[in-house]
Amino acid sequence: MKTRLALLSLAALPVIFSGCASSGTPGRDARYVDSEGTQTIVSLDKINIQDWSNAADQMVQSMLLSGVLDRAPTQPAVLGIGRITNKTTQQVDTDYLTKKIRVALNQSGKVVTTTTYGLGNYAEDELARQTMEIQKFENNDTSTQPLPFFTLSGKLLEDRASAGKTNQVTYTFQLSLTQTNNGLAVWEDEKNITKQGQRNAVGW
């Protein structure tokens, strides 16, 4: 009886432990994975979705910890998005970085981003800008629109190295927050994301 129980317990073990495994086999059947989770693909030749999220999160954490956003005379402070220069070998849309930062700062209640005033007089939301101008004209309002108190600018860099069959890529995210009334960078940070391996992988 005891032997049978022991055998039964042994047989049950794999069943119990297989319950710990996630379902599905990567690469065969398509399935949804959490974009912010640990099951996303890690590539050695591109900035992955988790890299953007991670870089943006680290930048936001750094910015909030620095306390510079609390120093703006009016709260929430108005933020303008400046130029983010892409010096990597990839063609990327830097909104992957800046939008995440904007969302997080907006949710913190410390910053609002202007969408009617941008680099080279380019309005991100042209309809909003035109509507604002019409409203001002109709109301005989001569005040100027709120100008950014802070601007965000930066650069994306890439560094590659290899040793034998192992490849390494480092993506560097550099950002500066400039106070527009004096032109001084009141916050700056740089974050590196380094990936190393011989081939791309599912999960990390």
Partner: peptide, 8 residues
Amino acid sequence: TYNATVGQ
């Protein structure tokens, strides 16, 4: 946990 069960 993930790599051993589902990952490559």
